[in-house]
């Protein structure tokens, strides 16, 4: 195209100027974020979640007690402001607030690790199966079906045996199981994106299968992936609670929201503060995540575009 017109030199200068100055368009993501921020419930949820995360990370440094320090003078005591046990102590005399914050940290960490692992595996697996289709797809998805059919808890027990009781490794393992649903969703989306003309345009432009998958398909999966991720986080928090309940989860003196709740539940009548704090945080977090999920679904709804 060299020398279409005599304006090349001028254009080059213009090009350089524009490199920084051309007005930025609004991407679909920005559009969706704007819609999300117009949704009050979602906005409040985001703030509450950020507050919980910040508090869980920073809070422990501001408290007089750490989560594993035993206060022999205050065992099983209700909230006591003078001693700095703002939310009381547990049966071993450890500060409940400090433990709850540590538990929140732990729950968030496992949820984040497991979600990231499941999203990454799910996207890759689903996009590859969906894009290549045919026999590859049939084999890959049959494998997913088989995995679905196997009992989940059996796997977890095997994982615990393999990984020992390192919580993060355990939840990498759980993420490795959670990807099944993600892979199905992504595969379905990929099948429909694959039909769109811009994929054909990319092929005509010489792009190979993996360029197409990573440059053209994966970015268009944002909607379902983000929505599904907001649903996965609470699911994993609940899974963790369940595993802790079975004694397969986090190990003492570390704790998690699930462990705290399962410890607090049997004595809730006598020592209600043992249950109240972790339960309240868990419930608030789950509620916020579900409002956020709803908000995202509306904001990313393609019908609105």
């Amino acid at each position: 195209m060299a020398g279409i017109t005599g304006k090349d030199a001028a254009l080059t200068a213009y090009a350089n100027a524009l490199a920084n100055e051309a007005p930025k368009g609004r991407s679909l993501t920005q559009d969706a974020l704007r819609r999300l921020f117009n949704n009050k419930a979602a906005l409040v949820s985001i703030f509450v979640l950020i507050a919980i995360v910040l508090f869980a990370l920073v809070g422990p440094y501001l408290l007089p007690w750490t989560y594993d320090k035993v206060d022999w003078s205050a065992i099983r005591k209700p909230p006591d402001w003078a001693k700095g046990h703002y939310f009381g102590t547990d049966q071993n005399g450890r500060d409940m607030l400090a433990r709850t914050l540590q538990g929140t940290q732990m729950s968030l960490l496992v949820a984040a690790v497991a979600t990231v692992v499941s999203v990454v595996i799910g996207i890759l697996y689903g996009a590859i199966a969906g894009y290549f289709g045919g026999k590859i797809d049939a084999v890959m998805m049959r494998f997913v079906d088989i995995m679905y059919a196997l009992p989940y808890i059996l796997f977890v027990i095997i994982l615990v045996v393999i990984f020992g009781r390192s919580p993060v490794l355990l939840f990498v393992g759980i993420g490795c199981l959670e990807w099944l649903t993600m892979a199905r969703i992504v595969r379905g989306q990929t099948l429909s994106i694959k039909q769109r003309e811009f994929i054909e345009a990319a092929k005509a432009g010489g792009a190979g299968p993996f360029t197409i998958i990573f440059r053209h398909i994966v970015p268009n999966l944002t909607g379902p992936v983000v929505i599904y991720a907001t649903l996965t986080v609470p699911e994993i928090i609940l899974t963790e609670s369940f595993l802790s309940y079975l004694g397969l989860g986090v190990q003492e003196p570390q704790t998690s929201l699930g462990t705290l709740i399962s410890d607090g539940a049997p004595v809730a009548e006598a020592l209600p503060w043992l249950l109240f704090t972790p339960a309240a945080i868990l419930v608030v977090m789950l509620l916020c995540l579900s409002y956020l999920g709803d908000g995202l679904r509306d904001a990313l709804d393609p019908k609105d575009r």
Binding site: F198, H216, N220
Partner: peptide, 29 residues
């Protein structure tokens, strides 16, 4: 050998800017 499609919007990747879309064949070819 190139092609132009019928549905102008469907043939453009919604997540890419105009510049990226037009440059795409150059990047690969």
């Amino acid at each position: 050998l190139q092609i132009i499609f019928q549905d102008p919007l469907a043939s453009l990747n919604p997540r890419m800017t105009v510049g990226e879309i037009i440059a795409d064949p150059l990047r690969t070819l």
